[in-house]
């Protein structure tokens, strides 16, 4: 037999298109730097200077950036660089977990709902409608008020973290479930799915081999667009005092604190705020690039 000709799958094709999208690729690189900075930063800082995120130096107080404290310190004399790194870990983790929840729960729920159709679909979607029409903040506030954080601490994580993940995860999958259901409904009527039925492919394989992979394009794009939203929600909840608590920090809490002292200690706002803005920018550009790459027909020329 002659040598086989390798084909280019749609994923490879999308990858090739994405690599041409310079802004998107640059954003991915910057994001990678931010993640590495936050992930390996704290132990490095501790090794070099000896600071940790909760270590106070009250007599020192707030000082502007210097060689010893590159981002300066806050009113309690805590090193702002290590706190920004730590806050980044928290914010990125929240975003990651909420996105993971929304991906797994949302995709499965939407796929099952759309594929089942009929009454099952109607019932499952009415539940989503109810969840969506419940004021999200109310839900979170009630949840946080009812459940004491200490009762849910899990795998060494602080209870307030777990609650935050839970609260954000609870609502973040709803939109995705709707998107996936819509996709599945239209894919279900596509001829290649009918072809799979005509061949005699088993139902679960039809769903997971023929339908779900074809929904992933819009899902990935949507996921990359949800991350900024989740990070902002976390910041907002923390701002209300419902999320991350002292001495823990997230970008949201740091920006909140910084904004209170903006006129006298601008560095408290500039560093965490700048990093957060940079991250959100990059995520948006990344999402743009992914959308163009995964759905070339929607691209404006």
């Amino acid at each position: 037999m002659a040598e086989l000709v390798e084909g280019t799958s749609l994923w490879q094709d999308a990858w090739r298109r994405w690599r041409k999208h310079r802004v998107s690729v640059a954003s991915a690189v910057v994001l990678a730097f931010v993640i590495v900075f936050c992930a390996i930063g704290p132990p490095l800082v501790q090794a070099i200077w000896g600071w940790t995120y909760e270590m106070q130096d009250i007599p020192l107080g707030a000082v502007p950036p210097s060689a010893e404290h590159p981002f300066g310190t806050d009113q309690l004399g805590r090193d702002l660089m290590v706190r920004t790194m730590h806050g980044g870990r928290v914010s990125l983790l929240v975003a990651l977990v909420a996105t993971a929840v929304s991906l797994t729960v949302g995709v499965t729920y939407g796929a099952v709902s759309g594929y089942s159709g009929g009454r099952v679909d109607a019932a499952m979607m009415r539940f989503v409608d109810i969840m969506m029409s419940t004021p999200y903040l109310l839900l979170v506030i009630v949840l946080m008020a009812v459940i004491p954080p200490s009762s849910v601490s899990f795998a060494g994580l602080d209870g307030s973290f777990v609650l935050m993940f839970g609260a954000l995860g609870l609502v973040s999958w709803l939109v995705l479930a709707r998107i996936v259901r819509g996709q599945v409904l239209s894919l279900k009527r596509r001829e290649f799915v009918e072809a799979a039925r005509a061949i005699g492919v088993k139902p679960h394989l039809i769903l997971f081999r023929h339908i779900v992979p074809n929904t992933l394009g819009p899902v990935i794009v949507y996921a990359s667009m949800t991350i900024p939203g989740v990070m902002l929600s976390e910041a907002f909840l923390s701002f209300l005092g419902l999320g991350i608590r002292e001495p823990q920090a997230s970008w949201g809490t740091l920006v909140n604190e910084g904004s209170n002292a903006m006129s006298v200690m601008p560095w408290l706002l500039v560093f965490p705020g700048g990093l957060m803005t940079l991250t959100l920018f990059c995520l948006n550009f990344l999402g743009d690039g992914l959308r163009d790459a995964l759905d070339p027909s929607a691209r404006k020329s």
């Binding site: 596509r190 001829e191 009918e194 072809a195 005509a198 061949i199 005699g200 081999r209 992979p213 074809n214």
Partner: peptide, 19 residues
């Protein structure tokens, strides 16, 4: 039973799974 009866579709673009 589907082993013994098959179908050929109208639209050769839509009837093959693109992935």
């Amino acid at each position: 039973m589907r082993r013994r009866m098959q179908m050929i579709f109208q639209d050769p673009y839509a009837s093959l799974n693109p992935r």
